[in-house]
Structures are given as structure tokens and as C-alpha cells.
Design a protein around this nucleic acid. Structure first.
Ligand SMILES: [Mn+2]
Ligand SMILES: [Mn+2]
Ligand SMILES: [Zn+2]
Ligand SMILES: [Zn+2]
Lengths: 144, 144
DNA sequence: ATCTCAATTGATATAAAGTATCAATTGAGG
DNA sequence: CCTCAATTGATACTTTATATCAATTGAGAT
């Protein structure tokens, strides 16, 4: 199940969305980028392949994918939202308060907690993002 | 240690920032609001108390507080960043993909995971945000 | 209490990011 | 093929964020 393009495409269709040419191009560019990209950044990438694609279409596609829980917008210091891929429903970051560097990790102990919370609030969990904030080694030196 | 205003003020001074009149007003308004407010939303609130406060000052204060790990910007559906209070270093959300409703909860099992990750990446953790995404009870009915 | 100067402020201008609209196009089913 | 609702992309606009800089202010030194 590593075919993310297939996963994304299927989910779109399952929810009644058409798999149009524009959307295919956008999905490919998004997945090729690996995520951590802004909407307008993605517009640029997409247009290298298909110059005709409209900015609105990219924005709208990102919104749909977010609703489906396949991606999520997060802040990365700058003003624009950065979209991250929610492969298998989760994503984990260490974010440095000093330099905004982002370190990725895979460990996750949230399944149990998810079940507990899910039951209590009658909420169907599709995925999660955990972000630890703090200072990386470099930034601790500087401000020491 | 429930005096958040004291906590915030002290932290500012400990890091060499002046505790100015403008900053005091902004801190009070932010804490009174309970968080979950946008920068421009906070500007409005602040100006009810002190009409002279500049918009840039509010933006800059929010940036400082973010660097210190006292607040964090998160997405809430709309285009503007919403700032949440990081009391005791953490904050937890259930975010509905259907209606963007936000449910708060307190449980946390991340201390152990934090220690593990902190050691491996030589990263000093100040706090974290966990967001579970999914569908609330109401939204499951609608799309059923 | 007054002085001093770097830190801070806020007005102004500008850029970036997001949203609304609508006529033209397209794709999936009949 | 046809049909028609879904989708697209150009355009215009609003909101949100950032850059600049002269004027002001706060906190320590005298
Ligand atoms: Mn990531
Ligand atoms: Mn909250
Ligand atoms: Zn850092
Ligand atoms: Zn909902």
C-alpha cells in the first residue's frame, strides 16, 4: 500500500470527486514534493509540468485533500500554510523555537490515547499530528 | 502557579524583553480571551482598552510569545493563524474535518515519548501540541 | 530625579496569502 | 454521441503578514 497516488486518487473518487486531469497533475506534484510545501509553491511546481493549471484549482484541491484527512496545513514560521502528507494517518515533528527547523520522527504512542478520547467525545478519529516545540542543539549554543 | 499573566511577564523579562505598557495590555487581553484568537482579532480587543496600540506591536508580541513557547499558531479553517495558549507546555485538540469544530481535552501520555525523542535528537522540548483529526458525531450523520 | 541610549513603538507602505465570482470547459453516465 | 452538473481558470478583491523608519519610551547609570 505504498502507492500514495493510488490511495489519494481512490479516496477522491470514493467521495464523489472527479479524477480530472488537473487534479491528477496536482496530486503527482504534491506527492513528488514529499509535502512541506505551500499552496503557491505547489502552483509553481505544477505549472512546470502543465502551465495552464489555475491557482484556484490548486487551492481547491488542497482543501479537498485536507477535508479527506490526507494532508494537513501547519505553520512553519512563515505566513503561508505548509501542507504535510498524512501517510497512514499521522505525522510527527520536532519544531525548534529558535530557528524553525523541523525534525521528523516516526514513533507514535497515541493509538491508546486516541481510542480513549474517541469514545469519550463520540469522535471518529482519522489521524493526528503531534508537534513538540523546543530548542535544537544549535540554538541552545547560541542563546546559552 | 495559576497566575498566567505573571508567568508570561516573567518569561519576557527573563529573556531580556522590556515589560512595556503596550505589552502588558496585549498580554492581559490575550489571556482574558483564553486564546483561540487571531492576531487582528486580538488587535480589536486590545484597542477597546487602549485605542492607541499599533497593529505591528500586537503581531510582534505574538511572535515573541511564540518563540518563548508560551503560545502557538494553529490552523482553524480560516486563512488567519489562531493562537492557542500553551499552559504548562501543552494543548490538545480534536478537530472535525467536516465542520472545523474544535473539542478540547486534557489527557496526555506524551511525557515518555518526549523523553525518548528528546534524547535521540538532542532536542530540548518545551512543549507540544497534539491534534486528532476526524469527524464529530454531527458530521457523521450528515455524510452518512 | 535626571540623563542616556538601545529597545520599542506605531504610522505608513507594500507584499503575500487567501477568497469570491462567473462564464467557459469537461468528464462520467445514459 | 448527448447532457448536465461538476469543475476549471481568469479576474477582481479582501484579508493577513511583513518591511521600514522616525519618534517615543523604559530601565539602568549617574
Ligand atoms: Mn514533516
Ligand atoms: Mn484549544
Ligand atoms: Zn534551532
Ligand atoms: Zn463536525
Amino acid at each position: 500500500m505504498d502507492d500514495q497516488l493510488g490511495v489519494f486518487s481512490n479516496r477522491l473518487q470514493q467521495h464523489g470527486y472527479r479524477l480530472t486531469t488537473a487534479r491528477r497533475v496536482i496530486l503527482e506534484a504534491l506527492l513528488a514534493s514529499g509535502g512541506h510545501i505551500t499552496a503557491d509553491g505547489l502552483v509553481e511546481v505544477v505549472r512546470q509540468q502543465s502551465p495552464g493549471i489555475g491557482r484556484m484549482t490548486v487551492y481547491r484541491t488542497l482543501e479537498i485533500l485536507s477535508e479527506l484527512g490526507l494532508i494537513r496545513p501547519v505553520y512553519q514560521g512563515t505566513g503561508a500554510a505548509h501542507y504535510i502528507l498524512m501517510e497512514n494517518g499521522h505525522h510527527h515533528h520536532l519544531v525548534c523555537s529558535g530557528c524553525d527547523r523541523v525534525i521528523e520522527f516516526d514513533e507514535c504512542v497515541l493509538e491508546e490515547m486516541g481510542r480513549l478520547i474517541s469514545g469519550r467525545f463520540d469522535f471518529q478519529i482519522q489521524g493526528h499530528v503531534v508537534e513538540f516545540f523546543g530548542l535544537c542543539a544549535d540554538c541552545r549554543r547560541v542563546s546559552a
